[in-house]
């Protein structure tokens, strides 16, 4: 049974927070990095960002979470920044070209 003080609050504030969270957990469990390695990288990134502005633990926290995954995957050679940008732009075009309410699909070749 959920507790009273957690009842009104969703576990993740936005669906992409959940996606980013799950991605790190899954990559860890697939052996791409250990959790202590993750904590070292992520906490360093948090600290760096926190020096410039106060983090509220919401979007800004998960943006750094996501940037840490990108940095670790890039450092290990699993992805390149160019590749991520290319596919990201592909998704952007797919969203823009898809009428509202229809499923969005990445174009072939992206």
């Amino acid at each position: 049974m959920p507790q009273c003080d957690t009842l009104p609050t969703p576990v993740f504030e936005a669906p992409w927070h959940a996606q980013a969270f799950a991605l790190a957990v899954h990559l860890n469990e697939s052996g791409l990095f250990t959790w202590p390695e993750w904590v070292t990288q992520f906490s360093a990134a948090l600290q760096e960002a926190g020096l410039a502005r106060e983090l509220n633990g919401g979007d800004d926290y998960f943006e750094i979470w996501l940037a840490t995954i990108e940095a670790m995957m890039t450092a290990e050679g699993h992805v390149t920044a160019t590749e991520v940008e290319h596919v990201k732009q592909g998704w952007e075009r797919a969203y823009l070209a898809t009428p509202h309410g229809q499923p969005v699909h990445l174009q072939e070749g992206v």
Binding site: P15, W16, Q19, A20, L23, H26, L27, S30, L32, D59, F62, E63, L66, I69, E70, M73, H78, V79, E83, V84, E85, V87, K88, G90, W91, E92, Y95, L96, A97, T98, P99, H100, V104, L106
Partner: peptide, 27 residues
């Protein structure tokens, strides 16, 4: 009309990462 709410930058980045890592068989 096109999607009136183009997802924000991090949404698209998560999607892109998932797409690439899935294609490579890593997730």
């Amino acid at each position: 009309q096109p999607h009136s709410h183009l997802p924000s930058d991090p949404v698209l980045r998560v999607r892109a990462l998932e797409t690439i890592l899935t294609r490579k068989g890593l997730i």
